[in-house]
Amino acid sequence: MPAPASAATPLRVLRAVVFAVVAFTLGGLAHVVAGGVVPFDSAVTAFAVCFVPACLLAGRERSPFEIVVMLTAAQAALHLLFSATDVIAEAAGHAEHPHIGLVPGFGMLLMHGWAIALTGLWIARGEALLWSLLRWLSVRLRIVQVLVAAPVACEPAHAPFRQPVLLRSVLLANELCRRGPPAIARPHAV
């Protein structure tokens, strides 16, 4: 597994929101299907119970085992919260939940276990996809950054012009060169 990368704050919040929505929806729907009620104030508290720890732990890529452990803790906290809400509602005479009490039965534990395993697998695959996409984008953006930051091609710098060195042998160094057309004779002024 590659070295864990760090998540920026917007990505951390987005990942925590996704985790909280999945965990809250799973727990809340299961509770309602079992015959319980989820009042608005309990729903807000339940979402916060899922979101705050997820936001704190969303700073790096998590393994499937870590995700399942976090989901198990979230489901246990939600079960206790929703069961406490039902106990309070039952005491007030407003609800009749067939599973009143804080300790879940075997069937409820089995259903929570299946939900945690399937949801954990789903979130783990989403995490792996997200991080591989971010790594892929990071490499692509780095290539673009290098290409954009490359120096612009300009004309090569020219060396200052120097007269070419005439090579003469030492023997002919004092000789005059008289090649060329004959000089025009000028009449002398009288």
Rank of each mutant, 00 (worst) to 15 (best):
M1G: 10
M1H: 12
P2N: 14
A5D: 13
A5K: 07
A7H: 10
A7S: 11
A8Y: 13
T9C: 06
P10W: 00
L11W: 14
V13F: 07
V13P: 00
L14G: 02
F19H: 03
A20N: 00
V22M: 13
A23N: 01
A23W: 02
F24D: 13
T25Q: 09
L26E: 05
G27N: 03
G27T: 03
A30W: 11
H31G: 06
V32G: 05
V33P: 03
A34R: 06
G35A: 05
G36E: 05
V37M: 13
V38K: 00
D41G: 07
D41Y: 12
D41I: 06
D41E: 11
S42E: 12
S42K: 02
A43P: 00
A43S: 06
V44I: 10
A46W: 00
A48S: 02
A48N: 01
C50G: 01
V52P: 01
P53G: 00
A54T: 00
L57F: 06
L57D: 01
G59Y: 04
G59K: 05
E61S: 04
S63G: 04
S63D: 07
E66K: 01
E66P: 00
E66F: 00
M70E: 11
M70I: 08
T72I: 08
Q75Y: 10
Q75G: 11
A76W: 06
L78T: 04
L78G: 01
H79R: 10
L80F: 05
D86M: 15
I88T: 09
A89P: 05
E90L: 13
A91W: 15
A92D: 10
H94T: 13
A95P: 02
A95F: 03
A95G: 06
P98T: 10
I100N: 08
G101P: 01
G113T: 11
A115S: 10
I116M: 09
I116V: 13
I116G: 02
T119A: 13
T119R: 05
G126Y: 02
E127R: 02
A128N: 05
A128I: 04
L133F: 15
L134H: 07
L134Q: 08
L134Y: 07
L134K: 03
R135C: 14
W136K: 02
L137K: 04
S138E: 14
S138D: 15
V139T: 13
V139E: 15
V139D: 15
L141C: 06
L141F: 10
R142N: 14
R142M: 15
V144A: 09
Q145M: 12
Q145R: 12
V146A: 13
V146Y: 14
A149Y: 03
P151Q: 08
P151T: 04
V152S: 10
A153P: 09
C154E: 15
E155S: 13
P156T: 07
A157W: 13
A157G: 08
A159D: 13
Q163L: 15
V165Y: 14
V165T: 09
L166A: 08
L167V: 08
R168I: 09
S169R: 03
S169P: 01
V170D: 13
L171M: 11
L171C: 03
L171Y: 10
L172N: 08
A173H: 07
N174V: 12
L176I: 08
C177V: 12
P182H: 07
A183K: 05
A183G: 04
R186N: 06
R186A: 11
A189P: 07
